[in-house]
Nucleic acid binder design. Structure first.
Lengths: 153, 153
DNA sequence: TATTGTTATACTCTATAACTATA
DNA sequence: TATAGTTATAGAGTATAACAATA
């Protein structure tokens, strides 16, 4: 029988992370970090980070959407959007127009350039999403999405 | 036939987020935010945030683990751990002992207090995870975990 | 009185580079 | 020469409070 190393001097060769891996939040967080990393690398050519992409895409599919509506949809705070909207406008990707029925609000719209960029970015986003989920079948991917939505909706 | 509002003056009542909802990364991120929010609220009594909890739990299940091993397991950078380890030691939840075979490294261990806290915190974490996934069956929860791991491992 | 958009501010989390001591 | 742990620093992301204009 070989001498056992005392517990106080023990060293670890193989890390046991099985408990953490049993937590949904741990797994969603780790998966998010991997996908966001790939996202940042592939979307850098468009100068878009995740939230900026989400904003541009939502405006594309909802012309006339307001900042307030973007905030509630994406679950972010109004101050986050201010600089982002200004920057997207300065890049001539979006325009602000007076809201037809609310003098306080502004309706957001894409420019022709913005529409083109949004379309390209969405193709890239879908491509890299497929790469990130390459080990999943189409059915598994669909299942994953449904299960995740049951958590946050 | 009712007069249609011109596109330039259009307003949006119902936001169409269907494209974003078709992206895995969007769904993992939204789910993570919901779970982390619940985590922060329920774990505040222990004074533990997500990464601190992960560190404490990993030390509990891997006595003698080093900072470097925590970094590679959790995919975080060494500087993040320095203050955290100091704080956990000051709270007398962990102790640092010289590594038996590497003079540069320190083996991390839980104190009796740390073991007790880690055990309680793990029960709370498991409970709130179950609450967050209340709309999922046990099978669905298991499936979700397996699918997520296929993305980040 | 409530809401939209805005400003100012601070806090958390994280990434990078450089250092020391040991290997 | 490489690695473990540390320090200093900067950046990104987010949260809160308070304000003007409008509802």
């Amino acid at each position: 029988m070989p001498a056992r190393t005392p517990a106080t001097d023990s060293t670890i060769d193989q890390i046991d992370a099985s408990y953490l891996e049993s937590l949904v939040g741990y797994n969603t967080r780790r998966a998010t970090l991997v996908i966001v990393d790939a996202f940042l690398r592939h979307m850098a050519v468009y100068g878009l980070k995740p939230v900026e992409f989400s904003v541009l895409s939502l405006i594309a599919h909802n012309p006339g959407i307001t900042s307030r509506q973007l905030c509630t949809t994406l679950n972010i705070q109004p101050p986050i959007l201010v600089g982002m909207i200004n920057q997207l406008e300065k890049r001539e990707l979006i325009t602000r127009r007076p809201h037809p029925r609310d003098g306080r609000a502004m309706g957001l719209h894409l420019t022709a350039t913005g529409r083109k960029l949004a379309k390209q970015a969405e193709v890239t986003a879908s491509d890299l999403e497929e790469a990130a989920t390459a080990r999943l079948s189409a059915t598994e991917r669909k299942t994953l999405m449904q299960l995740l939505r049951k958590i946050y909706i």
